[in-house]
């Protein structure tokens, strides 16, 4: 049966236009081991809770997480929206401010000697440590969380942008100069596209950390959001709902990372990191 399946998907894949269904089939064919492992993980979890007779207030089986999470879906979705807003606003602000600032630092010798080393120092500070301060300054609302997400995402974005705009190869630099093109033209035609892959390293790193920042900021002080939810239900001895909260937080992180990866594929399809992931 497996052989026929392979033959079928190979025949479908060879046709010029690959439909969504075929792409799913080829994905299943390539990743079936992982899929089996993934399902197995949850089965072992499910069974061991019963087998070892673990109290429900310590660990709940996944089936119960789904059941209880479904019952509390309204609250979970609303909190996902809240945490999602904090994450997206903070992240977008980090990109919108970080990228031009990285560019400015890369091209200004004054900024490179003042702001840049300062940023490198700040990068060493765990930004999360500032969270209680911002909560105490700005209260329980949206703004302190946005600022903390911003801080967590901003430094990898700006530092990678500086690196990106500073690392044009010597040959391409000489090529630009030998054409007599002005700085603006050289930037648009060569420097900017050449810098995009390294910029995306920062964007992706920031995207991974954005939800971490939002969740921890909510742990420290808030009255809504997934971080708040996870903390409250854990206090109420409800690990089932805590796992449901973690699940939605994970979805949020995946969605953000997915969007950034999609943007990368669309903007720099020529880059090796994108080409390698294509089949």
């Amino acid at each position: 049966m497996y052989v026929t399946f392979r033959r079928y998907s190979a025949a479908m894949a060879s046709s010029k236009k690959t439909s969504f269904g075929v792409r799913v089939l080829t994905w299943i064919e390539r990743s079936w081991m992982f899929i089996v492992f993934f399902i197995g993980f949850f089965l072992v979890w499910e069974w061991s809770v019963t087998l070892f007779d673990i109290p429900r207030y310590i660990l709940t089986p996944p089936s119960l997480v789904v059941e209880k999470g479904w019952a509390d879906l309204d609250r979970l979705l609303y909190y996902t929206y809240i945490t999602g807003s904090e994450t997206v606003i903070g992240y977008v602000a980090a990109v919108v401010i970080g990228l031009p600032l990285g560019l400015a630092i890369a091209f200004s010798s004054i900024l490179r000697r003042t702001v840049y080393p300062f940023f490198v120092c700040i990068e060493m500070v765990p930004k999360i440590a500032f969270a209680p301060l911002f909560i105490s300054w700005l209260g329980f609302g949206l703004l302190p969380k946005v600022i903390i997400v911003f801080l967590v995402c901003f430094f990898p974005i700006v530092l990678n942008a500086i690196l990106a705009f500073n690392s044009l190869s010597e040959e391409l630099t000489r090529f630009c100069r030998s054409t007599g093109a002005g700085p603006v033209l050289s930037f648009i035609k060569v420097r900017l596209p050449a810098a995009m892959p390294q910029c995306f390293v920062g964007f992706k790193y920031g995207a991974i950390n954005a939800t971490v920042g939002a969740a921890i900021a909510e742990f420290i002080g808030s009255d809504q959001g997934l971080g708040f939810y996870i903390q409250i239900v854990t206090g109420n001895m409800r690990p089932d709902l805590a796992f449901a909260g973690i699940f939605f937080l994970t979805l949020l992180g995946l969605a953000l990372f997915g969007i950034v990866t999609l943007a990368e594929r669309m903007l720099i399809p020529w880059h090796i990191s994108v080409r390698r992931n294509k089949t």
Binding site: L172, T179, L185, A194, W270
Partner: peptide
């Protein structure tokens, strides 16, 4: 000018790379 490491940019085709020389000028 031509170097040992070429100055072809990866986001343009062969023709696009040749055109780059002209566009820059």
């Amino acid at each position: 000018i031509m170097f040992q490491d070429n100055t072809l940019v990866p986001w343009r085709t062969v023709r696009g790379n040749i055109e780059l020389q002209l566009e820059m000028r």
